[in-house]
Write a protein that binds this DNA or RNA. Structure first.
Lengths: 172, 172
DNA sequence: TGCACTAGGTTTTAAGTTGCAACTGAAAAC
DNA sequence: GTTTTCAGTTGCAACTTAAAACCTAGTGCA
């Protein structure tokens, strides 16, 4: 298979292009959502998310190649194949929940059911947030880009040293 | 423009399909990344992320229609158009950071520079996580789906009441 | 053993999408 | 008033997607 598509600009070392290369295609999120809900088999994905057969086969192959799903033949029924989330796949949950919550916050009239809860207390989870080193919740106003060579790791905040390589984020 | 694509399965009231309808296309994440980094104009996006002209025009229109970007003509130069993130767009940052961090954690040899930091102390932000009502960090093992009618809102955890509508998440 | 059926794919073909390059039209610069 | 710039649009070829038919190994059952 040839490749017309450019590999989503490698400029600025950033995990985004890499991530999008793995899961950026239509349906990939939905397939992973299925996987998180216990869907494991081809025909099950097929009916669960209403995707075309050939596309599903292709996406499962790609997600497997990307190390997000693990493909293993079932020992008891050798026609069947089991797709399971790898650690990398499981680690994707945070992103998926963040996206889902965003969709719910801004979609019109989505009552959202069932609700994702803590098994311990059966209370809904908090909205996913960005947190500072001190666990403070940060908005885009509180963020900046700093050159890797200049980040303060554990040292005490040495006042407001005006560094050249600090860029504010987002719109003013 | 006709539409062959199905609207990503509305089964299970979930914000994901809604979210993907808005930003699920190739390039949309990259365009938003640009926007968060202060990119505002057509030609700027064009050179910054290496997208085709017609595709960019199409995506900017769609993101604007989805209420994620706001399009306004520049008062000082009436040829120019300014695209800015709306509150909905700004709220997408959490998801983008989560995806980016995931990409960085699992990509091979991405040193990640510059680093996203807290403007206050110049220390790197924490990895984005899922938190319970009590702010505990939760993994997929700690999560379950509960029917909206049965979620505990503020009440004391009434022991481990074995409810019928509780479904464990992810693989066992 | 033979036959129907299932699971998980491929193949085929039409329809839709993407990417490049060339073009447009209005506003600014010179 | 000619050239340049900005933000698009158009035309076309290459590619991807979707739907339906087909394929193949493995099961269930008589």
């Amino acid at each position: 298979m040839g490749k017309l598509r450019e590999p989503l600009s490698e400029v600025a070392n950033c995990g985004l292009p890499a991530a999008l290369e793995a899961i950026g295609e239509r349906w990939s999120f939905m397939i992973l959502r299925g996987a998180f809900n216990g869907v494991r088999h081809f025909e099950e994905f097929l009916t669960e998310i209403g995707i075309a057969r050939n596309i599903l086969a292709n996406r499962l192959t790609r997600l497997t190649e990307a190390g997000i799903l693990h493909r293993s033949p079932c020992p008891d029924d050798r026609r069947r194949v089991e797709y399971r989330l790898t650690p990398k796949g499981l680690d994707f949950l945070t992103t998926m929940i963040a996206l889902r919550q965003w969709g719910e916050r801004w979609a019109t009239g989505v009552p959202s059911n069932p609700v994702l809860c803590d098994v311990r207390d059966h209370k809904p989870i908090l909205p996913v947030t960005i947190r500072g080193h001190d666990d403070r919740i940060l908005s885009h106003m509180d963020l900046c880009w700093i050159d890797a060579s200049e980040v303060k790791l554990e040292g005490r905040s040495s006042a407001t040293d005006e560094s050249a390589n600090v860029r504010q984020l987002g719109s003013g």
